[in-house]
Design a protein around this nucleic acid. Sequence first.
DNA 1: GGAACGTTTCGGCCGGCGCCGAAACGTCGC
DNA 2: GCGACGTTTCGGCGCCGGCCGAAACGTTCC
Lengths: 227, 227
Amino acid sequence: MTQGEDLARLAGLLADRTRATFCLALLDGRAWTANELAAHADVAPSTASEHLTKLLAGGLLVDRRQGRHRYVQLADPEVAQLLEDLTGHLTPTPPRGLKQATAGVAMARARTCYDHLAGRLGVAITDALTERELLDQRDGFGFTPRGLVWLKELGADPVALRTKRPLAKACLDWTERRTHLGGTAGAFLCTRFQDNGWIRRVGTSRAVRLTPEGETALHSLLGIRSL
Amino acid sequence: MTQGEDLARLAGLLADRTRATFCLALLDGRAWTANELAAHADVAPSTASEHLTKLLAGGLLVDRRQGRHRYVQLADPEVAQLLEDLTGHLTPTPPRGLKQATAGVAMARARTCYDHLAGRLGVAITDALTERELLDQRDGFGFTPRGLVWLKELGADPVALRTKRPLAKACLDWTERRTHLGGTAGAFLCTRFQDNGWIRRVGTSRAVRLTPEGETALHSLLGIRSL
DNA sequence: GGAACGTTTCGGCCGGCGCCGAAACGTCGC
DNA sequence: GCGACGTTTCGGCGCCGGCCGAAACGTTCC
């Protein structure tokens, strides 16, 4: 009985245009300031502040105060997963206009899913890892011993990756309808690729673009030719 | 941008105590009448009617009119999956009182998840199917040729099970945090078990109880001893 | 036909919520 | 210290949405 109230409370957090826009923006995994979000959702800063306190209190977001700024981001990967689930269940509205259409194409090709890679790029990497027996999807979803070595060779710190959050996690992709690699390993690969200049963010969106260097690197590293 | 509005609209459907209670009740997979739901959520019939039209319009529910009754149920298994996802993300509130506690134990042991079996029973069946190589979880999630024969021997109609909805689908269990069998095959097993008198509903809840006949049947059929 | 029953529509009430602008607070840089 | 800036608090406004009871509609049962 009280379960219904809890569900209503959770849904209520997202049942507002402005708050929903905030959360979707935060799905890029970055920390935003209150002002940025206000501008993005086209509301007054004071309004944004009120919404943020609600989302904070609801446990969907966490904040980090730095000087006169207040950075806010999704509370944890589970929240991101929840949002991905929800957006996946939306009735797909056909894109209006060329701009949105090309943006959709870029997102489908490669994007970040909270803190790891998704889209065709994310799936391709996951497939390649599985094919080379670095990742094992047969029982559970985890790295093989050889896969762990591979991660280490890429510069991963085995200790840093051993947290409460699972190393590898299957994350469902709503454009590909396939699973791709999440977890701390997925996050590591995403930041590593970015640091190496293999991928670059497209504008301020969640879409990313594979650089020429990234293309050759992916080919030599995992045998991925093109998307 | 409009994506935020869509998400808000979807969440808004569940952002009401009464509507959330309706949806959670409908998670048992059965069709309820408007009056039953009104009584269950403790609101006037007229209020329930208004909520139902909203949920209908929102695509979460479908209705079937029969005489002077209006039966309503979840629109499709995807909606059920969405609701399961959401409830799984709720902060688990400790049960208050002995009644709720025992109810929780029964639910954890065996329950229906929309139209198939979940809880320890559901997971045990899925594990047994996998172990006997009737179900294959290695790539994708599907029945092996031998598994299809097994289903047929249980009385499944191969034609009836071949619909747009997948035969086997991995469904995440929020008490066990493991996957169990959904899809048309999962639904078939659930109704078959019920028809055979192997399981019986506990009161009007989603919890089910394994009958003595069911216990011996599960042992001979899949080697499952006890939960 | 008439009574009982499930359902729906309508009006009206009430509370809550999102929004803004103004003002206050804190921090940073000069 | 002072101004600029990001953020928050507070009133106040307006509207939307949930709730009910009364009445109407349709079906079923007798």
